[in-house]
């Protein structure tokens, strides 16, 4: 999966490995992200996402490998690369002793904007994150979600070509999330490459044009979101079935548990989910038997695998490149 850096890629990662003494956080990562792409990096805790973000934002030197931001080698010209990227950390902080505009002004000044440009750009960025009304508020008084938006505004001050967002929606209310999604999509339309990691997976499904699945420091797969989801589920001779019940489901679970072809059964409060490896006829027979048993069910449906299922199903064996997506989140 070797990638040669091209002039068109906004982010080009070639053979990056990150070691912390004897622990390897990222193993040979190869990836290219192009202008206008919104790339979601998903993976469980410890997958290597934060290390990858740190390397990309020039805060951490990789053990091996090369990274190009907008064609610039970050090892050779880190200052130049920093001018082209905006980076937002997980639970990004703001100085508590400044007003919102003062915080933004400090960075706009550092980026070399003059006073009039600073004023204009700060207003534009605050507008983008819907915080114009909080211009004169103390950063200390902002909620977690607002703080995230202020930091996003800070990242946008210098109109970066690449945006790195580590858990950008942490602490945001649903309305703010929608607003964030709109902002990111607008930036994407303007040709900004966005690399985003988020544990709010539904958010990624709706937002990302591309995803990459990282586990134990290895990129298991990447590409357009739909393709990756399909690839991660194809070749598996099972269907994902979800049955909603009226009230208790212990009897149904016990019934299913003894049936042939039922795998990874998960019984939740008012629903049962499992993998079924039989044919469509077997599936129809199963439904018939459930009804004949007199079990009170309100729905029986075959569901699609989504990003969440893939993440939950990631194989925990390091070095594995194939993963099957079991439904049981307890696994």
């Amino acid at each position: 999966m070797s990638v040669t850096p091209t002039s068109t890629a906004a982010i080009s990662i070639k053979g990056v490995r990150v070691d912390y003494e004897s622990f390897t956080a990222v193993r040979s990562l190869d990836l290219e992200i192009y202008p206008g792409e919104v790339f979601g990096l998903i993976g469980p805790n410890g997958a290597g996402k934060t290390s990858t973000f740190k390397v990309l934002s020039t805060l951490l030197e990789p053990t091996y490998g090369e990274v190009y931001i907008d064609g610039i080698d970050i090892a050779e010209q880190p200052e130049e690369a920093r001018r082209r990227l905006g980076s937002m950390q997980d639970l990004a902080p703001v100085p508590t002793d400044l007003k919102v505009w003062e915080f933004l002004d400090c960075f706009a000044h550092a980026y070399g904007l003059n006073k009039a440009e600073r004023r204009q750009r700060i207003n534009e960025c605050l507008e983008m994150v819907d915080l114009v009304g909080k211009r004169d508020a103390m950063c200390q008084s902002l909620s977690r979600g607002m703080t995230q938006r202020v930091v996003l505004a800070k990242c946008l001050l210098h109109s970066p070509r690449v945006l790195l967002l580590d858990e950008p929606a942490s602490g945001m209310d649903p309305v703010s999330r929608v607003r964030l999604r709109d902002t990111i999509q607008e930036l994407s339309r303007k040709g900004v490459a966005v690399l985003i990691s988020s544990h709010i997976l539904t958010e990624l499904s709706n937002l990302c044009s591309h995803i990459g699945i990282l586990n134990h420091g290895e990129l298991l797969d990447h590409g357009p979101t739909r393709d990756v989801v399909q690839r991660m589920t194809k070749d598996h001779s099972f269907r994902l079935i979800q049955i909603k019940t009226l009230g208790a489901n212990a009897e149904l679970a016990a019934f299913l548990d003894e049936r042939e072809g039922v795998l990874d059964l998960v019984a939740e409060e008012s629903q049962v989910r499992f993998k079924f490896s039989g044919s469509p006829q077997d599936q129809a027979d199963l439904l018939k038997e459930i009804i004949q048993q007199g079990l009170a069910i309100t729905s029986f449906e075959e569901t699609e695998t989504n990003i969440e299922d893939i993440l939950l199903g990631l194989n925990t064996v390091p070095g594995s490149t194939q993963s099957s997506p079991p439904l049981n989140p307890a696994v």
Binding site: L59, R82, P93, P95, A110, Y111
Partner: peptide, 16 residues
């Protein structure tokens, strides 16, 4: 405090 809050990392990324 800047280090603890993570603000130093911002400054590290600022083009100064």
């Amino acid at each position: 405090r800047e280090g603890m809050e993570g603000v130093l990392d911002y400054q590290r990324l600022a083009p100064l």
